[in-house]
């Protein structure tokens, strides 16, 4: 699966990987806000944003092609909307729509490709995202693949039965039954997890292991990213 590639990328090392997740998150937000507020006619600004992003990708030492391909997943949707916009007689806006969504997607991808999800979640938490939500995301990500695998097995089993000539109605109810079983297993798994947590002395509070350090380099990186984004937005 594709996300595994991104996860592997996130564990590499590079100047960009080494930056604190909060600094990268702040830089990303500044960049995205600058792009979003840029008027569609400012073609030179979009070139400059792309150049800035290219510099970041190079310093992350990640494969250009892989990143671009992954970011292109947004293109079918944005191309559709861009086509409609073009057709409605606003080509500049159409191009801006496609370009904006692609560059933004690529920038977001660069963040997750240089930051392990745990660090990202810790950063979000220290920026004020409620702890229960962070924990739910953490558990969701942990069990996403475990439960998806179960669903995959069920789909395989359903496909094996497909030749039996069942009508659509009974196949519909068979799918509902499978969904029910998947639900039941997930619920029981959650109970098992909670039991395992209690067995290891869980007393109602999760404590993060290592608080990340926000160093001078992180600060410098954040300032540079914000300054560059703002400068492009205002000057071009």
């Amino acid at each position: 699966m594709h996300h595994v590639v991104v996860e592997r990328w996130s564990r590499r090392s590079s100047p960009l990987h080494a930056r604190d997740a909060r600094a990268k998150l702040g830089a990303l937000l500044a960049f995205l806000v600058a792009i979003s507020t840029t008027p569609p006619q400012a073609a030179r600004a979009f070139v400059a944003y792309s150049a800035l992003l290219a510099v970041a990708i190079v310093s992350a030492r990640l494969p250009f092609q892989g990143l671009l391909g992954r970011a292109a997943l947004v293109l079918p949707l944005s191309a559709t909307f861009a086509a409609v916009t073009w057709w409605s007689g606003d080509p500049a806006r159409a191009i801006a729509l496609a370009v904006k969504s692609f560059i933004s997607g690529l920038a977001a991808l660069l963040l997750v490709a240089t930051t392990p999800l745990t660090q990202l979640l810790n950063a979000l938490e220290s920026l004020g995202v409620p702890r229960p939500l962070i924990l739910v995301v953490q558990f969701l990500y942990r069990y996403l693949f475990v439960i998806s695998e179960q669903a995959q097995h069920m789909r395989l089993a359903a496909r094996c039965r497909q030749g039996l000539g069942l009508d659509r109605r009974s196949r519909f109810y068979a799918a509902a039954g499978a969904l029910g079983v998947l639900f039941a297993r997930s619920w029981e798994r959650a109970d098992g997890i909670y039991r395992a947590m209690l067995a290891r002395g869980f007393s109602g509070r999760f404590s993060p292991l290592a608080p990340a350090r926000f160093g001078a380099r992180d600060f410098a990186f954040l300032c540079a990213a914000v300054a560059a984004s703002t400068a492009i937005r205002l000057a071009l």
């Binding site: 069990y143 798994r189 098992g192 039991r195 947590m197 002395g201 292991l209 608080p211």
Partner: peptide
């Protein structure tokens, strides 16, 4: 427990193994 996936619920191995000691009140380090 029988199902290791239920036992290993933290995002990384280190965090998971450290889960118990942290609950016992040890410092993260």
């Amino acid at each position: 427990f029988q199902d290791s996936d239920e036992q290993l619920f933290m995002p990384t191995v280190l965090e998971d193994v450290a889960f118990g000691p942290v609950n016992l009140g040890l410092s993260p380090q």
